[in-house]
Structure formats: C-alpha cells, structure tokens
Design a protein around this nucleic acid. Structure first.
Length: 234
RNA sequence: UUGAUGACAG
C-alpha cells in the first residue's frame, strides 16, 4: 500500500493525473494516505470538482479526514467563488482538534487571504493557539497580495517581536515594498537581513530590491545593485 | 508514501 501510494504521488507530481487516478483505483486497499495523496494531487492541479468528489467518497468508505486532508481541501477553496465552501470546511472542524493545528490554521489563513477576505484571515490567524514563521508569512502575505504594504509592514514588525523572520518573510515584505514603491522601507528591511538577523541576503532578496528600484525608474541604482550581487545570479 | 507561507520572469 505504501508503494501504491508513492506511485500515485509520483504520477501526480508529474502531472499525469490520469495515471495517478488509475493506480489509485487499482489499489486493492486504500488508506487515508492514499486518499490524501490523490486529493492533494487534484488540488494542486486545480481539479476542484474531483477534490470534492474524492472527499465525499472517502467519507462514504468510512475513512475520517485528517489534517492533511483538510489542508488540501482548503487549497481547493482558493478562488473567489469558493469562499462559501471554505467557510463550510472551516465550520467542519471549528470545534475539533484540527482547529488547534498550526498547519491547518495556516492553510485557513492562506485560503481567506487568497479569497480576498482579509478580515477572516486575520480572525483565523489571531485564533490560532500558536503561530510559527510559516503562519506569520501566510498572514503577512495576505496583506502583501492585496497591496496593503503598510499593513504588511505593520504585521512584520509585530512578528519580529515574537520570532525571527525567515527567508520567505523577507521575500514577501520586500516584494510588498516593491509594489508600493516604498524604497526607504525596502532598503531598511534589506539591510536588516544581515545587520540585525545575521543572515546572508539571498538572490531572491536582491531580485526584490532590483525590482523595487526598477519599477521606480531608478535604473542606474538597479543596475549597480545587480552588478554587485555577491551570490550566484539566476 | 500524503501536508501549510514566496516575489520577478508573467
């Protein structure tokens, strides 16, 4: 069964949905991992109808969804029209232990954020029993995505009082500065990567800064930075 | 064996 599940996963990751589907149905036994694997594959390929169909079928076969299942289901709710469905799924586990799960909570924040419901994203985030850097990134990213750079920076500052930002955090916040044209804030944050956090700025961070300068038409500075990127450029 | 956050290229 482990081998079968791995096969479903392999075909899915290769985007061979038909093959994944066929292997799945040929399995003599299917456990919760088998279902999760195919549901996750369908979610990533944006086959939302199939996600719902499988979710229903697995329950008909008497299997209980776990946190992996819910993460994929929430993934499939990422589209404007699915906000209602997303809330339904949320209600499904509102009073269960899944509501306490960091990864399910993060998937919720992402879902609400991508559906444009920043209020719900904020509520879901604040209701999480604890937040790790991935949760913070999802939360900050929700504001960044909607051009709320000031809010993104505000929550970034809150995050810094609790735990250290990571590489993804800086990418999100710098990108947000780039879209809002916040060049001073961008430079401050960029400098803090090495000066405050002792991290080596990644090529992604240089790319964000170059993008920021470029959008403002400050091409000489952008080029200068590009020529001075100390790591390997992509 | 399945899982949450990522900008540019677009």
């Amino acid at each position: 069964i482990v081998l079968g599940n791995a096969l479903v996963n392999m075909y899915g990751k290769c985007e061979c949905l038909d093959d994944a589907w066929e292997v799945f149905w040929r399995l003599t036994e299917r456990d919760v991992v088998s279902w999760n694997t195919l549901i996750s594959v369908c979610a990533h390929l944006e086959r939302r109808d199939q996600v719902w169909q499988l979710f229903e079928q697995m329950r008909l076969e008497g299997l209980l969804p776990d946190r992996f299942t819910f993460v994929s289901i929430l993934d499939a709710c990422i589209t404007q029209a699915a906000l209602v469905k997303g809330k339904m799924v949320h209600d499904c586990f509102l009073s269960s232990a899944f509501n306490m799960d960091v990864m399910v909570g993060t998937a919720l924040v992402t879902m609400y954020g991508k559906c444009g419901s920043l209020k719900d994203a904020e509520r879901a985030f604040e209701n999480m029993p604890r937040q790790n850097s991935v949760s913070w990134n999802a939360f900050i990213g929700a504001f960044a995505q909607y051009g709320e750079a000031k809010q993104a920076i505000h929550h970034f500052k809150r995050m810094k009082q609790k735990l250290d930002p990571d590489k993804v955090t800086f990418t999100i916040v710098l990108n947000s500065c780039s879209h809002a044209g916040l060049v001073d804030e961008g430079w401050d944050i960029f400098s803090s990567i090495s000066q405050v956090y002792g991290m080596v700025p990644a090529v992604d961070h240089y790319a964000c800064m170059i993008d920021l300068l470029g959008r403002l038409g400050r091409l000489a500075e952008a080029e200068d930075l590009l020529c001075n990127v100390p790591c390997e450029r992509n």
